[in-house]
Nucleic acid binder design. Structure first.
Lengths: 340, 340
DNA sequence: CTGTTAGCGCCTTCAC
DNA sequence: GTGAAGGCGCTAACAG
């Protein structure tokens, strides 16, 4: 293991001493201030490199009031949503410029408070709160001393700033794609009715069908977000409505189950029946046979925007209030369009 | 959005003034030092609460030389391995006691150096480096001024401290389970030969078969870590070796493909053929029909141990050097044992 | 018991 | 150009 007792971290004082200047001069030299003779700067820089000096960001932050640090507080156990959001945020901040504290509250309000206190104590410059559903979540309140952006799960308070996928639009987009590929007898199998994501997508589906002069085959089928449900629902559908030519599923998991069952009942995808899902979870969509068309929620983009808002707010810009919706993106694969 | 210009964060000085004591006394009162009169402590605590004071961890860290902060530096894009490890680390540290910086180098050495500098500049107390394969990775070197533990991907330097899944043992464990359920004609379909995980598991498989007086059916089949390969390989296997009674797959993804193909060729799982995988990736294992037996790598445990080592090293304890292997855990589901 | 003093590492005035 | 001094918020050591 690396040296455990580092004697003492190297400080600006050490660099200054080695370069034979005062700390003030060393500071100026290293920070590109212009009131330093070139040769002096040279000496200081060399000394810093020789000691592999890295300035103490704590001391700097203490003085500056900025820490270059952001908290990402999530309740998304699996990391399925939070990871792309984290990556988007890193993109926006620039690697190494801003570091991100990632805390997982595990759906526990007490733990969330703990982490919140810890983050504020560490003087993060801003907070991004990531939920695991798109249903509004309880606001952290208005008296947090740093900018807060709610991502994925919007805040339930209108004065907060939130960013969430446009699931109504995603539902619409899905149906428009199916209609464009010539499908007219479309069913919708989705997850729990308790989830806004399920209800919103269904609303978009209905709207787009109406706009196309079509009707949904059967009712929207709500149940659990699982492959099992996808299989069961599809079996019922094909039994009751054999004329179906598309099963639009509320998630990629459900779609995988649907795909399975369509095959199991001797029909082909996409020729007899198109199947598509939502989320574009690649491990599911790119490994099925055929690969699965899906709507990607653009979470990385969402994370990038959230980070930009935090940043903008820090600079005193007004980023507004309320919830903004991020457009999804259609990813077409073999389950809706035959390879030619 | 929350208040953007916080005037100024509330400081111990504010609390002290409101309570009518000196900052030193306020500090002692809030930190449970015993040389404070009870009524005074009361007043200070009340003042702190009224102002919702939270101590500046930067200032504290500056003084103490400890920041209560750990860096988790990963190259695991998907977060599949890093998330359980992060959670284990949080468990070990205790929520709110230690905060974790999560940085994703995205497999880029330059970006890794950037993040490393940033983390050291922020004076993390320790580092956990998480790779995305179990193959040894380049050491960060011996002159990092804080304890470093390599998790999942061990370091290639013998003086570093590493923690990685015991894949040989996992392979053995898998075969022992299959043999215990009465299987004797076992094939092994796995991922890329370039991955130590694939080779190690295969070595364990061979060892356990030999110990049981059995032989592998055909050769170990190496190719890609995908469902597609699981399907293709299984089709070939059942064609060439129709006597097979178990397909042991190198990952859950491959196992899903195998399951698919066994069904597709009109055999039943687990009655005719048992199927099992590795990793216990629940979205795959618990949604198949039947559910998939797998070996869980105990990554959360791995994260917990890594964190404990960092912690121990910080307290000057010797945590040794070299690579330690974490045992896997057999998770039995319907794909190897029929429900009765 | 409480207050004063000093200093953690750094940066920013302000003299020289 | 360079150095000395002050202060960011906090705690430990020492006075009172």
């Amino acid at each position: 293991m690396a040296r455990t007792d580092p004697a003492r971290a190297v400080t600006l004082t050490d660099v200054a001493r080695l370069a034979g200047v005062s700390v003030a001069t060393a500071s100026k030299a290293l920070n590109g201030r212009d009131q330093v003779k070139d040769t002096t700067r040279q000496r200081v820089v060399e000394a810093a490199e020789r000691l592999s000096f890295s300035p103490n960001a704590l001391a700097r932050g203490l003085l500056a009031g900025r820490t270059g640090t952001v908290g990402l507080l999530t309740s998304d156990l699996e990391g399925r949503f939070v990871i792309p959001i984290l990556m988007g945020a890193e993109d926006a901040f620039g690697a190494g410029q801003v570091s991100v504290f990632l805390c997982d509250a595990r759906g526990d309000a007490i733990r969330e408070q703990y982490h919140l206190r810890a983050l504020l104590g560490r003087r993060v410059d801003g907070l991004i709160i990531v939920g695991r559903q798109t249903d509004p979540r309880a606001s952290l309140g208005q008296d947090i001393p740093v900018p807060v952006v709610y991502a994925y799960a919007p805040s339930d308070h209108p004065d907060d700033r939130s960013l969430t996928p446009d699931n109504v639009g995603a539902g619409r987009m899905a149906v428009e794609h199916l209609v464009a590929t010539g499908r007219t007898r479309i069913a919708h199998v989705t997850g729990e009715h308790a989830y806004a994501a399920a209800r919103d997508r269904a609303a978009g589906v209905r709207a787009a069908l109406a706009a196309a002069g079509l009707e949904l085959v059967g009712d929207v089928m709500y149940s659990e977000w699982s492959e099992r449900w996808g299989r069961d629902a599809t079996a019922m559908l094909l039994e009751q409505h054999p004329e179906i030519d598309a099963v639009l599923c509320g998630s990629d998991q459900i779609a995988r189950g649907a795909l399975d069952m369509v095959h199991g009942l001797g029909r082909t995808v996409p020729d007899d029946v198109a199947v598509m899902g939502f989320d574009n979870w690649e491990v599911l969509t790119t490994n099925s046979r055929p690969e699965l068309t899906s709507i990607d929620a653009n979470l990385q983009q969402l994370g990038r925007t959230a980070a930009q808002w935090v940043f903008a707010a820090l600079e005193g810009k007004d980023v507004g209030t309320g919830t903004e919706f991020v457009d999804g993106r259609l990813v077409i694969r073999g389950s809706t369009v035959p390879r030619r």
